[in-house]
Every structure is written in C-alpha cells, then in structure tokens.
C-alpha cells in the first residue's frame, strides 16, 4: 500500500499532502515517546501518535517514516503545520483511538 492509497481512501482526514505519495508503507507503528520512536520505528512506517508538535515532524523525517497519523483527535500546532508544508510530509488526522487507527492501516496492508 502506498501513501497515496491512504490519501485517496478517506479513512483519515488529510491534513497535509507530502511529496512522497508513491512511497510504500511497510507497517503501522505506535508510540508517543519521541526517542523510543526514534530508536525503534522501522523505516517506511505509518506512525500513529498523539504528539502534534514540531519535534514529531523532525523525528518522522529523520527516522524515515512514510507518513504521520495523528490519532485521538489531536492536531498539529501552527509551527508544526508550517514545517509539514515546508518539508512536504504527509500528515493525517483522525478522531479514532491510536489502536484503531493503526489497525485500519494493518488491515489494509494485510487485506
């Protein structure tokens, strides 16, 4: 499944469309502690988190996440939204709990 498939599918609200829509998503990954995510998130993950600040975007970029899914109704703050636009990172939002959001990605990958 590509990032583009997730953009088109409508499961999550698209907050920012990045420049990496052709990228293959390998797995969902859930964690809110930045340095745990940094150390353990596999490359090409769909990263599901409630942390919507600028550091989330830095970690996503540096650890090679495919996209960010903000769950539990959390949002990007303004500096983070600007950074997402500037760095062209794909970010989704959803009211769903973290587990359910990640499970949707998992089901699509294993359909």
């Amino acid at each position: 499944m590509k990032v583009l498939d997730l953009v088109q599918d409508g499961s999550f609200k698209v907050l920012n469309e990045g420049n990496n829509l052709e990228r293959e998503i390998r797995a969902p990954y859930c964690c809110d502690l930045l340095s745990v995510a940094m150390g353990r998130m596999p490359a090409d993950s769909a990263w599901v988190t409630v942390m919507g600040n600028i550091n989330t975007l830095a970690v996503a970029t540096l650890a090679d996440a495919a996209c960010i899914i903000l769950a539990e109704g959390s949002h990007l703050d303004d500096p983070a939204l600007n950074k997402a636009k500037q760095q062209e990172i794909t970010v989704f939002e959803t009211e769903l709990p973290i587990f359910e959001a990640a499970f949707i990605v998992y089901q699509k990958l294993h359909a």
Partner: peptide, 16 residues
C-alpha cells in the same frame, strides 16, 4: 509534554 524524557536519547546514540 512535548514527547521527550523517555531517557532513550543517549542509548540511541550509542546504538546507532
């Protein structure tokens, strides 16, 4: 509150 403080930064630096 920003997501830091897991105490994994230095271990990550050593690991990577």
């Amino acid at each position: 509150n920003l997501g830091f403080g897991a105490g994994m930064g230095l271990p990550n630096m050593k690991k990577y």
